[in-house]
Design a protein around this nucleic acid. Structure first.
Length: 265
DNA sequence: ATGGTAGCACCGCTA
């Protein structure tokens, strides 16, 4: 089966792009972040029409918001309160085939990489620690189950997850404290980073390019902020991963492109 | 060293 994660930056504004993506790539499940819409205004009919009949929505007005759209039935396993601010940043489902899916939108963290001066950065660090704690507690019981965590984690952990390691060490998303906390969250459950399972660490790969660049493709100053992780037992079932860079060049593109993984389950 | 863009809301906030 194919599962995709995409920070869509307003699902209503980009509904035509989602339709094109779903028609061209046919994932079984699509996890969205930054839907920017309350559940009552979510464009559910468009997804039904495209063959995605099963919806789990957790939105809010104007900011944040996550959603899971699926061709396969699932049961909702709830929204963890990872977020002390009450933002819509996580939701989980368990698919009919037993796969447990967690869709995350980690706080971006503002501009200043100092938790004392910037409450948004402090919130991001707490949120990452909350992820570590939640899955750490379940390690013994759930680590052997098929579990997948994906989403916009807003951290580019490795040197070649950013266009310039040196120039971004002080930039929120690539600071040592963030990459350390993301690493802690990964070890808490022995998560496998699916993109890096397939792409060697010395090869640059990104999932996000700023809107502020005059020519995003020419400068190619990207970061890998979007991730798919799987539990250790699923590692052997991984078939492929794709970061759909060309979609950054579509008309009305999101600043993030989808990450899609293929798993044999 | 600075400011550049985008979406939503509402005339600023968040990214």
């Amino acid at each position: 089966m194919k599962i995709a994660s995409w920070n869509i930056n307003s699902v209503r504004h980009r509904i035509q792009l989602v339709a094109r993506f779903l028609r061209e790539h046919q994932p079984d499940v699509l996890c969205l972040q930054e839907t920017k819409v309350t559940d009552d205004l979510f464009p559910a009919a468009a997804f039904h029409k495209l063959g995605y009949a099963h919806h789990a929505l957790h939105g809010q007005k104007a900011y944040h918001g996550v959603a899971i759209l699926s061709r396969m039935p699932f049961k909702q396993t709830g929204v963890q309160d990872f977020c002390r601010e009450g933002h819509a940043r996580h939701m989980g489902v368990t698919l009919q085939n037993g796969l447990e899916l967690h869709n995350f939108y980690v706080p971006a963290g503002g501009d200043v990489a100092d938790p004392d001066a910037n409450p948004k950065f402090a919130h991001k660090l707490d949120f990452l620690q909350g992820m570590e704690k939640f899955f750490g507690k379940r390690k013994a019981a759930a680590r052997s189950n098929p579990v997948m965590l994906l989403g916009d984690l807003n951290v580019a952990p490795l040197e070649h997850d950013v266009w310039s390691h040196k120039q971004l060490l002080d930039v929120v998303s690539h600071t040592p404290v963030e990459t350390r906390l993301l690493g802690d969250a990964m070890s808490a459950f022995d998560w496998c980073d699916v993109t890096r399972h397939f792409v060697p660490p010395d090869q640059k790969i990104y999932s996000w390019w700023s809107y502020r660049a005059a020519d995003w493709a020419a400068s190619d100053r990207g970061r890998r902020l979007d991730h798919v992780w799987v539990s250790p037992g699923l590692k052997g079932a991984l078939k492929s991963q794709t970061i759909l860079k060309k979609m950054r060049g579509w008309q009305k593109a999101s600043d993030h492109v989808p990450v899609m993984v293929e798993v044999d389950i």
